[in-house]
Each structure stands twice: as C-alpha cells, then as structure tokens.
Simulated assay, not measured.
Amino acid sequence: MSAPREPFFPADRSIRADEAPLEIRHLGLVDYQQAWDLQAELAARRAADEIGDQVLVLEHPSVYTAGKRTQPEDRPTNGQPVVDVDRGGRITWHGEGQLVAYPIIKLADPVDVVDYVRRLEEALIETVRNVGVDEAGRINGRSGVWVPASGTRRDRKLAALGIRITRGVTMHGLALNCSNTLEFYEHIVACGIDDADVSTLSLELDREVTVEEMTTPLIDALDAALAGRLKVADHTFAEAPDPTKGLPRVPRQG
C-alpha cells in the first residue's frame, strides 16, 4: 500500500465509529460558504452524537477556495474572490460540473488521518476506473487521483482532496471533475502544483460525463471504502514532491 506507514486498522475493517448506514444528502447547487457553515454545524452535532454519519453531495457555483498552506503566489490572477477555508492543502477551484462530496463522519479511535485519505482516494480510483479511466491512480507525495502522462500530455489530476478532522469528525472532502470547465484553473497554481495539469472525466473519455452519472457510483464506492469492503490497494504510478511540505500556514486574507 502506498502510505508512509501501515494503517491502524486492518484493510477489511471499518474506519467509522458507527455501523449505522450512512445518510446521503443530495443538496444540488449550494453556495460554498453556506455549505461550509452547514458542515460546521453538522460536525459539531456529530461530535456530540446528536446525529449519525452523513455525506453531503452537491455542486458549487464557481469559487476559489484557499486551504491553510496556500501561498500568495498561488492566488488567482483574474481578480476573482477567494474563500479562505480551514481545510488542509493549498488553493483550488470549484464549479458546476464538478461532483463534490463532504463526509461528516465520526472516525473510530485511534483516528487515522492517513488511512482516511487513502480510503477516499480508493473510492475515487474505483469509480473512475469503472467508468473507463483505466490507468487512474496515485502519485506518491501528492493527494488526489491522477492520470499518468501520455504522449505530449503531463500527469493530470482528476479529483482533489482536502479535509479537516475535529473531535474525531471529518469535514470537507473530495471533488471529482466530471464535465466542468478548466478555464478557472488557468489563473491559479492549483494545489500548489505547477509541473502537472488538471483534467475531467469528459476530456479523458471523449464524451460528456455528468455529475448525475457519477454520483451513485462514487457514493457506493465511498461507503464500501470506509467500511473496509473496498480495500486500499497500491495504485501508485509515480512519485513527486509534496506541494505542502515545509510550508508555513499563511494568515487568512480579508
């Protein structure tokens, strides 16, 4: 398995503290700040055991979001506003045509952040491979799901991850590029990575791949990965520098 160490739990064991079924909430198109506020409210209630585990499934209107390691040079050159957010990582973009999932999950003790991230990646890899992107996998040193370089094309990211865990409960999550524009990525250093590119399922498969098409397969894979029915495997095809390693946290702007 491509991880810095062995996980705390066996690969076939659930990483969730609760065995009850996940509640899946399909929210449609939601403003980023509203979704963030909802996550914070739900995470606090989940930590207090007032609600069970759930996954928010949605799209965002066009927005840049900057994680805690975002550097000044990463920020957009097109004058668009940025939401500074409490997740890890650097800057990214969200918009329509991108499938976003925010698991609000209480993790089993001891909390294993690395294993949680690897399970999210595994769910995404399973999903995109099943739809036809057979070579999708990991780049050691970088989170997310990638397609390896081919011909004149560089390595390219299909799905991004950014998480926060507070009181053992997860927030933020993953974004899978389905049919969204890539225009807005041209004005930032996406995730702090300038030696690779970004892609979508529609571009990789040369057909329109909608959010609606990918929602059920992704949720099913996510449920299976968290439960241990879908085991984390080694899908690493390359190594590259970690774009957040050694960087200080930059004070939020605004």
Score class of each variant (00 low, 15 high):
150 S>W: 12
129 R>H: 03
133 V>S: 03
222 L>E: 04
136 A>K: 03
221 A>H: 06
203 L>R: 14
200 T>V: 00
110 P>S: 02
161 L>S: 08
202 S>M: 06
125 I>T: 13
191 C>D: 11
193 I>M: 02
171 M>V: 12
121 E>C: 07
221 A>E: 02
136 A>T: 01
154 R>Y: 06
206 D>P: 11
119 R>S: 11
142 R>T: 02
143 S>E: 10
156 R>S: 15
110 P>T: 00
168 G>I: 02
221 A>V: 04
161 L>P: 12
150 S>M: 11
239 E>K: 06
137 G>E: 04
211 V>M: 10
180 N>M: 00
140 N>W: 01
150 S>T: 09
235 H>E: 10
125 I>V: 15
185 Y>T: 11
133 V>W: 04
133 V>E: 02
183 E>W: 05
121 E>S: 12
166 T>S: 14
179 S>T: 14
211 V>I: 13
130 N>Y: 04
123 A>Y: 07
128 V>I: 06
238 A>T: 11
156 R>N: 10
131 V>P: 10
210 T>R: 10
123 A>H: 12
155 D>L: 10
147 V>S: 04
145 V>S: 05
226 L>E: 07
120 L>R: 04
129 R>T: 05
161 L>M: 14
233 A>P: 01
180 N>D: 03
167 R>V: 04
112 D>T: 00
199 S>Q: 13
217 P>G: 02
234 D>Y: 02
157 K>N: 07
206 D>R: 14
134 D>F: 03
120 L>Q: 09
135 E>V: 07
145 V>Y: 03
110 P>M: 00
212 E>M: 00
226 L>Y: 11
137 G>Q: 05
131 V>Y: 05
224 A>I: 12
186 E>C: 09
162 G>R: 06
